[in-house]
Simulated scan of single mutants.
Amino acid sequence: MKIIVDAMGGDHAPGEVVLGAVNAAKELGINIVLVGNEEKIKLYLDEQDPRIEIVNAQEVIGNDEPPVMAVRTKKNASIPKGLRLLKEGYGKAMVSAGSTGALMAGGLFTLGRFEGIERPAIATMFPTRKKPALLLDIGANSECKPKNLAQFAVMGSIYYREIMGVESPKVGLLNIGVEEEKGNSLVKTAYGMLKELKNINFCGNVEPRDFFDGNFDVVVCDGFTGNIFLKTVEGLGFFLLDQLKDEIKRNITYALGALLIKPVFNAVKAKMDYSEYGGAMFLGLDGILVKCHGSSDQKAIFNGIKVAKKFVENDILFELKEAIKEIEGEIKC
Rank of each mutant, 00 (worst) to 15 (best):
K321Q: 13
K182D: 07
A255H: 12
K81S: 12
V219D: 01
K195E: 15
V68Y: 12
M164Y: 10
G62M: 13
V178Q: 12
I117Q: 08
K75M: 15
M125R: 09
T189K: 13
L240I: 08
K231H: 11
E328D: 15
R161Y: 00
R72Q: 11
A7C: 08
L194M: 08
G177L: 11
K310L: 15
F126E: 04
V218W: 09
E47Y: 13
T225Q: 14
E330H: 00
G15H: 05
Q58C: 03
A77C: 02
L86M: 08
G177K: 00
A97W: 05
V5Y: 01
L317H: 08
K245R: 14
M125Y: 15
V33N: 02
F238A: 11
G98Y: 04
G279K: 10
K42H: 03
H12Y: 15
I228M: 13
I248V: 15
K245I: 14
C333M: 02
D222P: 10
E247Q: 14
V218D: 00
E118Y: 13
Y191F: 15
F239R: 06
T124G: 14
I200D: 08
F126C: 04
A308H: 05
I316H: 06
V218L: 00
F282C: 06
S157F: 04
L260D: 04
K321D: 05
T124V: 11
A57G: 02
V220D: 01
N148A: 10
A105L: 09
Q151R: 02
E118N: 15
K269Q: 10
Q48T: 07
D286V: 06
M1W: 08
L45S: 02
D242M: 11
A97Q: 04
A280E: 02
L240P: 02
A97S: 15
E27Y: 03
I52Q: 10
M125T: 06
G9T: 01
G116P: 07
L244I: 03
A140S: 14
I305A: 03
R72C: 10
C144V: 07
A267I: 00
V55L: 12
R72V: 00
M94I: 15
N76G: 01
L256P: 03
F126R: 01
A133W: 07
T189I: 06
A77E: 02
I248G: 09
K75Q: 15
N205S: 12
C333K: 04
G62T: 14
A153L: 00
S295V: 07
G101P: 10
I176L: 11
M125A: 12
L320I: 11
L108W: 03
T110G: 11
A7S: 10
A140L: 05
E27H: 09
A258M: 10
V154N: 02
R209G: 11
D11E: 09
G139Q: 00
Q58M: 08
K74H: 06
S99M: 01
G284C: 05
G237C: 01
M104W: 04
E207F: 06
E59T: 00
G237A: 06
S275P: 04
G82W: 02
P263V: 01
V35G: 02
M155S: 04
D246S: 13
S168F: 06
D222Y: 07
D246G: 05
K74N: 05
S96F: 07
P127E: 11
S78L: 03
F216N: 01
E326H: 12
I30F: 03
E322V: 01
R129C: 11
E181K: 14
E59R: 08
K325C: 00
I138Y: 07
N201S: 14
G223A: 09
G279A: 02
